[in-house]
């Protein structure tokens, strides 16, 4: 039985590919984008999240923890990260949902059972399942099994990826994918390294690989003020995308700070908490991209 780690399954997802979809979020990401809005998906293994404002002070978690990793200190529950093995007992026992688990192990069958629940909506709207993350390609065996299972069920499959993966993984996945959402973050290698922690060489090669093999592809660019939204960068993006065979559209995803609460639960600072780019600026960038005969959409 093939298992993987996921951290959310979201139904009636409207912006993760065409029509009504269910998005499965696979846990773990090799990138560390400073603006990441799914920080709970970064680490590959499950771990608890903590919302102190919900805590009733009942201490049932302290009693339940099999490794004595929790203590009551200075009016709050403290977790010793060295002791905690992410077993999830605290989240299971906590009545107030002060402890929650980011991530859990799941089988292909379990994920598919959840995905299939919305099959009538997929059938009606032409939607399907989207595998997102984290970086779904980080769990290639699990992802491939999921894609094959969805394919057998005639469910439309989207993979939402950063493109940061070994070529052979991508090549294995691609024939079982009906549409890639390819998140392109920055074209400048140094800036890419600075803001995501990894090089973009392989990403761009993978992008060309998918395009040249005519795998259906949508390019999505998160628009982060001050990082990748300068007109010159947008122009370069336009040139690159317009030159890709079979690609004539680009989606801009303006930064939003809805992840603030997630960082609080993770008890880590939000490296890039900032303002949403303003609409007039977005409009100007859209205009710029349209000059490359690209169809431009705001949001997914």
């Amino acid at each position: 039985m093939i298992r993987g780690t996921i951290f959310a399954i979201k139904r009636y997802a409207l912006h993760d590919g065409p029509n009504i979809r269910t998005t499965v979020f696979l846990k773990g990401c090799p990138l560390a984008c400073s603006w990441c809005h799914n920080p709970e998906g970064l680490a590959p293994q499950p771990h608890p999240l903590w919302s102190g404002d919900r805590c009733l002070g009942c201490h049932s978690c302290i009693r339940a923890c099999p490794r004595q990793a929790l203590q009551f200190q200075a009016g709050s529950i403290r977790r010793d990260p060295d002791q905690c093995d992410g077993c999830g007992e605290c989240a299971r026992i906590c009545p107030a949902r002060a402890h929650e688990m980011a991530g859990w192990q799941s089988t292909v069958e379990e994920v598919m059972a959840e995905v299939e629940k919305d099959r009538p909506f997929f059938d009606q709207s032409g939607g399907g399942v989207t595998f997102s993350g984290g970086e779904p390609l980080l769990q290639p065996r699990f992802l491939l099994a999921l894609l094959e299972a969805a394919g057998e069920e005639e469910i439309h499959r989207v993979v939402d990826t950063s493109g940061y993966a070994p070529r052979e993984v991508l090549a294995r996945i691609a024939p079982h994918t009906d549409l890639f959402l390819f998140d392109l973050k920055h074209l400048d290698p140094a800036a890419h390294r600075r803001h995501t922690g990894v090089d973009n060489g392989g990403i761009l090669e993978n992008l060309h690989f998918l395009a040249s093999h005519r795998y259906p592809l949508r390019i999505r660019v998160p628009l982060i003020p001050g990082i990748n939204d300068d007109p010159d960068h947008i122009r370069r993006l336009g040139e690159l995308v317009a030159a890709l065979p079979g690609v004539d559209a680009i989606d801009l995803l303006p930064y939003h700070h809805s992840a603030t609460a997630k960082y609080r639960k993770l008890n880590i600072p939000y490296p890039q908490e900032q303002l949403r780019p303003d609409d007039t600026r977005i409009d100007a960038l859209v205009e710029r991209l349209r000059q490359f005969d690209l169809s431009v959409r705001i949001g997914g």
Binding site: L14, N19, I20, P120, D123, Q124, S125, G127
Partner: peptide
Amino acid sequence: SVLKTEQDLDKLCALVRTYFRL
């Protein structure tokens, strides 16, 4: 905010049609 675009309305209609099919 979720019923702004034509695609949003299409999805709302698909939601209704599916409920009725069920």
